[in-house]
Design a protein around this nucleic acid. Structure first.
Length: 109
DNA sequence: GCCCTGACTGCTA
DNA sequence: TTAGCAGCCAGGG
């Protein structure tokens, strides 16, 4: 697939993340056909908050260390952690997720 | 069209 | 394991 509309490809990848699983920015970028462009995924998700994140589980996207990256606006990080815990994702006291168990390999649940 | 900023990553100390 | 540095691409002013 080429790039239909830029960010849309990233959003589609994020939508494929099954409930109770999380993926890294790099993973999304690679699966979207843009390896190494993790920052663009961040941009896509940032813009998403303005478009309407209801269709995209942005909370399931974390950085390579399995941590919830800080976002532009405060309050969102607490929401993200809450949403993930509701889906069954365990978050360490330091705010880290065990990617060995909750990391999405790119396959459906 | 140029410059700065950014929800990142990987390597090295 | 944590901290610091540089590289990449795209959007916005």
């Amino acid at each position: 697939m080429t790039d239909p509309k830029g960010w849309e490809v990233y959003w589609q990848m994020v939508r494929r993340i099954p409930r109770g699983k999380v993926a890294t920015y790099g993973q999304i970028a690679t699966m979207a056909g843009r390896p190494g462009r993790a920052r663009q995924v961040g941009w896509a998700l940032h813009a998403l908050s303005e478009e309407g994140a209801e269709d995209v589980p942005w909370q399931r996207v974390v950085n390579a260390r399995g941590e919830v990256s800080p976002r532009a606006e405060p309050g969102r990080e607490g929401l993200q952690e809450a949403l993930l815990r509701e889906e069954g994702v365990e978050i360490d006291v330091r705010g880290r997720i065990d990617l060995r168990r909750f990391g999405w390999t790119g396959e459906p649940s």
